[in-house]
Nucleic acid binder design. Structure first.
Length: 798
DNA sequence: AGCACGCCGACT
DNA sequence: GTCGGCGTGCTC
C-alpha cells in the first residue's frame, strides 16, 4: 500500500505540527481541518489535518489510524478563519479548532465495539466466554467499559476479539443525525394503561399538553411504568430546541415600534451594504435603541436568505436584547449559552450547521458558530472586556476576530456601544469603520441628571464608610417613593496599593503612568509594567499628606450597613459570589425587574444593558477605585462603567438621577462621565495613548512566565528578553520592551509570575519572528521549569 | 493534556 | 526491601 505524509496539529501540545503517514486512498479523501485519530505517545488522540508534509528522516513516523468523521467538520469559510486566528494570536491551530466545536466532540467517545461475528471460537476463560456471549446476544454494540471488566479476568481479550474479527472497534464521535432534546412528553389518552396510572397522568395534563419527565416521576409513576407508557405510545417524547430561556418573554409589540430618524438612517446605511464586507460602529448613547436597529437589519439579512450571528458579552445579562429578538424572530433563534447541557450543545451546533436557525446569539466563543450561510455579524457592547479570552488557550479577542470573519466572508459587521472601545472609535474616525450615531433617547425617557459628591469634603460617617449623607438621603427618598435603586461598587481587581487619606491620590509610575503596587516587604512601591521601584514614599506627592490607607479588599460589610441604614430596603446583591459564576445572574436580575427587591447592589454586572423602568437612583459608591489598576486601559474601563451604570437610571417615565461619590471630582474623566461626554473623554485619552504609544497606536504582546521558584522565573524571563533583543536587532523590527517585572498577582497557584510587554506597530512581522525563533529553538530556549504564555493584544495586565 | 520515568518518604 | 508521591519531559 502506497503511503504519503501529512502534518497534524494536536490540541493541548506546544504550538507544533506532527508528521504522520497516511495511505494514498485515505489521502485522496482528506479535507481541510479533517479530524484524524492518531497514535501519540502511548495514547491515541484527535489531530487536525493541516497539510501535506515532507518525509522527516530520523523520526519514526507513525501511521494515522482513522478519520474521526467521514468529512471535515469545518466549512471552507470557517476553516480559513480558524487558521487566521491561530496565526494572528500565535496559538496552536488545534486548540482553535477545538474551541470551535462543542466540548462533547473534543473527546474521543469511549470506544464502542460492533459485534461482527457472534460465534466465539477464540480460546478464552470459560466464565469470560459466557459473559461475552450474553452481552453479544442482547446487543449489537458492546461498550469499551464492559470489555474492561472482562479484561480483569481475562487480560488481552479485547485485542484477541478484534483481531479474530468478532468485534470491530469504533471511535466515531459525531452522531450522523442530530440528537433531539426531549422537551417533554405528549399524552395520548386513547389508552391501554391501567386506570390508576392513567389517573395520575390525567392530573398532569396542562394547557400546552407537554409534560416533563420530572413531573411524571413526581406524580408517582415508576420508571418501569414510564418506560412501558412510552413503548405503548401513550407518552410520546417531543424533541426540539432546549428551552432554558423560555421564561424570557418576548417583548410585546417591538415589531411595530417605528425606528426614529437616526435609527432609520443607520438601518438604511447598513442594509445598503449587505453582501459585501463593511464594518460599522453603531455609537448610540445608553437607551438610544441600538437593539431596534439590530433587529431591523437582521430582518433584512434573513429576507436575503442568510443568517445573522450576534455576539453579546454575556447571555445572562443580555435580557433586553433577547426579548427584542424574541419579539421579532420567535423560534428562529438559537441561544448558545454556558448553562446548556452537553447534548444540547451538540444538538444546536449540528442544527446550526444544517442551516436551521436564522439568528444565533452567543458569547465570545459563538464567533465560531458554524453558520451555513452567514450574512452579517453583530457585536453588541463591543467595548466589553469579556470579548477577550485569556484562558484557556486560544487567547483571542472575539470582536476583532468578528471583523476578520466578516471580511473573509464578505459580509457587514456591526459593532454597537454607548462607550466604544478607543480602538474602535479611532477606527471609525479614521474611516476604517463607518460611524453611525444615535444621540437621542426615545419618547419621554430623559438622559439622567448626574451629580458628583466629593468624598474629601463630605466624609462618610465612620460606621458606614461607603455612604455620604447626601447619598443616604437620596436613597431613602427613592425607596419611600416606591422607586428602585442601583448601587455600583467597582471593587474589581483590588491590588495592594496606597491611597492618600487627604486627597485620595495613588502614586503612579513615572514611566508607565500606571499605579504602583505596594509591597509590604521593604515598604516599597513597584511598577508591574516596567519594574520601576521606589522606596521611602512617606509624603503624598500631590498634597504632601503623610497619612495613607493601605487598600486591600473587605467590602462585604456594605451589605450589613445597608440593612442598618435603610430599614425599608429589600436588598439583592449581584456579584460573582452571588451569581455563582454567571449561572444565576439572570435570576437575580429577573427578581429585581419583578420588583421583589428595591435595592440592587453589585459589581460591574449591574452596569450591563438591562432595562429597569422603575430605577430612579443609581449610586456609584467610590468612582475612582478602578483607576488604581495597573492597566493602561484603566481610565477607559472606568469611564465606560460610569456611563453604562448611569444609563441604568431614567429608563422609564421616572426621571433618573445618578450620584457619583468620588475622591476626584475634578478629574476630567469623572467630569466627562458626569456630563455624559464621550467625545471629550476620547479626545484626551487618545492623545495619551498616542504619547505613550499604546493601542491603537501599537500592538502589545504580553509574555508571561511562571515557575515554582522565584529566581528560576526571574532568570528565565531575563534570559528570554536578552535572546528576544538579540533577534530583534538584526531584523530591523521596531519594538519596545517593558520588563520583565513581577505580575501584580506575582504569585498564583503556587507559581511565581513575571511578565514582559512588547509594544510594536508591526505585529504580524513580530509574531512571524517568534514563529521562526520557536521553530529553530523549541520553547524559546527557556529552561523547562519555566512556563511561558503569549498573549497578543492582551487585556489582562494582572 | 496525559502518561511514564525517576527519585525520595511511609508501609509490609 | 517495595508502594506510590508528584516533579519533569515527551509526544511525529
Amino acid at each position: 500500500m502506497k503511503s504519503t505524509y501529512i502534518n497534524v496539529a494536536i490540541p493541548g501540545t506546544p504550538r507544533r505540527l506532527f508528521t504522520y503517514g497516511i495511505p494514498e486512498e485515505m489521502y485522496e479523501e482528506i479535507e481541510p481541518g479533517h479530524r484524524c485519530l492518531v497514535p501519540f505517545g502511548k495514547r491515541r488522540v484527535i489531530g487536525y489535518y493541516i497539510g501535506q508534509a515532507e518525509h522527516k528522516p530520523g523520526i519514526d513516523i507513525k501511521q494515522i489510524m482513522d478519520f474521526v468523521e467521514r468529512h471535515s467538520l469545518f466549512s471552507r469559510e470557517l476553516h480559513r478563519f480558524i487558521l487566521w486566528m491561530a496565526d494572528y494570536y500565535y496559538a496552536n491551530p488545534a486548540d482553535v479548532f477545538h474551541a470551535a466545536i462543542p466540548p462533547e466532540l473534543r473527546r474521543i467517545r469511549k470506544s464502542t465495539f460492533y459485534v461482527i461475528n457472534r460465534s466465539i471460537d477464540t480460546p478464552m476463560d470459560v466464565s469470560a466466554k459466557e459473559k461475552l456471549a450474553s452481552m453479544m446476544e442482547r446487543n449489537r454494540i458492546i461498550t469499551g467499559r464492559s470489555l474492561k471488566t472482562l479484561e480483569k479476568e481475562s487480560p488481552g481479550i479485547t485485542e484477541k476479539l478484534v483481531r479474530s474479527g468478532i468485534l470491530k472497534e469504533s471511535w466515531a464521535a459525531t452522531p450522523t443525525r442530530p440528537i433531539g432534546i426531549i422537551r417533554g412528553y405528549k399524552i395520548d389518552d386513547s389508552l391501554r394503561a391501567d386506570s390508576e396510572t392513567l389517573k395520575k397522568l390525567g392530573n398532569l395534563k396542562s394547557g400546552s399538553g407537554l409534560v416533563r419527565r420530572s413531573d411524571i416521576s413526581a406524580a408517582g409513576i415508576s420508571s418501569y411504568r414510564f418506560n412501558k407508557l412510552v413503548k405503548q405510545g401513550i407518552l410520546t417524547p417531543v424533541h426540539g430546541m432546549p428551552d432554558i430561556y423560555d421564561y424570557l418573554k418576548a417583548r410585546p409589540g417591538v415589531e411595530s415600534i417605528d425606528p426614529n430618524e437616526e435609527q432609520g438612517r443607520a438601518i438604511e446605511r447598513i442594509s445598503g451594504r449587505l453582501g459585501s464586507y463593511a464594518p460599522f460602529l453603531l455609537y448610540g448613547i445608553t437607551g438610544s435603541g441600538k437593539t431596534l436597529v439590530y433587529c431591523h437589519i437582521a430582518r433584512k439579512v434573513i429576507a436575503s436568505g442568510k443568517s445573522v450571528l450576534i455576539l453579546v458579552p454575556e447571555i445572562a445579562l443580555a435580557g433586553t436584547l433577547l426579548s427584542y429578538f424574541k419579539g421579532f424572530f420567535k423560534d428562529e433563534i438559537a441561544l448558545l449559552h454556558s448553562a446548556l447541557r452537553p447534548q444540547e450543545r451538540v444538538f444546536i451546533w449540528q442544527t446550526t450547521r444544517e442551516g436551521k436557525y436564522k439568528i444565533i446569539i452567543g458569547a465570545r466563543s459563538a464567533i465560531f458558530a458554524p453558520l451555513e450561510r452567514i450574512g452579517m455579524i453583530i457585536v453588541d457592547e463591543e467595548h466589553d472586556e469579556s470579548y477577550k479570552q485569556d484562558r484557556p488557550a486560544p487567547r483571542f479577542q472575539a470582536r476583532d476576530a468578528a471583523v476578520m470573519r466578516a471580511k473573509m466572508a464578505g459580509i457587514p459587521v456591526v459593532m454597537g456601544s454607548a462607550t466604544p472601545a478607543l480602538e474602535s472609535y479611532y477606527n471609525a474616525r479614521s474611516g476604517r469603520y463607518e460611524l453611525l450615531q444615535l444621540t437621542r433617547r426615545p419618547e419621554k425617557a430623559a438622559v439622567p441628571m448626574v451629580r458628583l459628591i466629593d468624598l474629601k469634603k463630605e466624609r462618610p460617617p465612620a460606621d458606614n464608610p461607603f455612604f455620604t449623607r447626601t447619598l443616604i438621603s437620596k436613597i431613602k427618598e427613592a425607596l419611600s417613593k416606591n422607586n428602585q435603586v442601583i448601587l455600583y461598587l467597582n471593587r474589581r481587581g483590588f491590588s495592594p496599593r496606597i491611597k492618600c487619606l487627604d486627597c485620595g491620590h495613588t502614586p503612579l509610575c513615572r514611566y508607565c503612568n500606571i499605579s504602583l503596587a505596594y509591597h509590604k516587604s521593604g515598604n516599597k512601591l513597584m511598577c508591574h509594567y516596567c519594574g520601576f521601584v521606589t522606596t521611602g514614599y512617606d509624603t503624598c506627592e500631590k498634597c504632601k499628606g503623610e497619612k495613607f490607607i493601605y487598600l486591600g479588599t473587605g467590602t462585604q460589610k456594605i451589605e450589613e450597613n445597608i440593612g442598618r441604614t435603610f430599614t425599608d430596603a429589600r436588598l439583592l446583591r449581584l456579584d460573582s459570589d452571588t451569581a455563582g459564576r454567571r449561572r444565576k445572574a439572570h435570576l437575580i436580575l429577573a427578581d429585581f425587574a419583578a420588583r421583589k427587591s428595591n435595592l440592587l447592589l453589585g459589581t460591574q454586572m449591574v452596569t450591563k444593558g438591562i432595562d429597569f423602568p422603575d430605577v430612579s437612583i443609581v449610586g456609584v459608591l467610590m468612582a475612582d477605585i478602578g483607576l488604581d489598576m495597573p492597566d493602561f486601559r484603566a481610565a477607559e474601563k472606568l469611564f465606560a462603567k460610569l456611563i453604562q451604570v448611569a444609563g441604568r437610571s431614567g429608563r422609564g417615565i421616572i426621571p433618573g438621577e445618578v450620584i457619583i461619590q468620588t475622591y476626584k471630582p475634578d478629574l476630567e474623566l469623572i467630569d466627562d462621565a458626569a456630563r455624559q461626554d464621550y467625545d471629550s473623554f476620547y479626545l484626551r485619552e487618545i492623545e495619551s495613548r498616542r504619547r505613550l504609544q499604546y493601542p491603537p497606536f501599537s500592538h502589545l504582546v504580553n509574555f508571561r512566565f511562571s515557575a515554582k521558584k522565584e529566581d528560576v522565573v526571574r532568570n528565565g524571563a531575563a534570559g528570554f528578553r536578552e535572546r528576544l533583543e538579540a533577534r530583534l536587532r538584526p531584523s530591523g523590527l521596531k519594538a519596545t520592551l517593558l520588563g520583565p517585572a513581577a505580575c501584580p498577582l506575582f504569585r498564583q497557584g503556587g507559581l511565581f509570575r513575571r511578565q514582559l510587554f512588547v509594544k510594536t506597530t508591526q505585529i504580524l512581522r513580530f509574531t512571524r519572528l517568534l514563529d521562526a525563533w520557536e521553530q529553530q529553538e523549541p520553547g524559546f530556549g527557556l529552561p523547562s521549569k519555566v512556563k511561558i504564555a503569549i498573549d497578543i493584544d492582551p487585556y489582562d495586565m494582572m
